[in-house]
Amino acid sequence: MKKLFPALFLLLANLVLVVATAAAQDKPEMADVMRSNGKIYVVVVVCLLILFGLIGYVFRIDRKLSKLEKQSKD
């Protein structure tokens, strides 16, 4: 009988632990830390800069082509 209580207690504690970890796994892991400390904005700025660089490049080619088209028309 003396040994039964600690055994029961251990079992109970184990059950609680299993339930707790299951509850923790219920929520998929997301990059919440990155969002809360604002580092995500660094990513956004870098991607935007790359996008603007590419768009600017396409824009310049467009302008040059328009000039060439005008020249060949004359």
Binding site: K27, P28, M30, A31, I40, V44, C47, L48, I55
Partner: peptide, 29 residues
């Protein structure tokens, strides 16, 4: 429509990184 393309792509990157998405296993972020 070229201006529209630029605006939509800026929205894609800003909204795509910052807006809320469903929380799913395996896929995560």
């Amino acid at each position: 429509w070229k201006i529209a393309a630029v605006i939509l792509l800026v929205y894609t990157i800003v909204g795509g990184f910052l807006m809320d998405v469903p929380r799913l296993f395996i896929l995560n972020e």
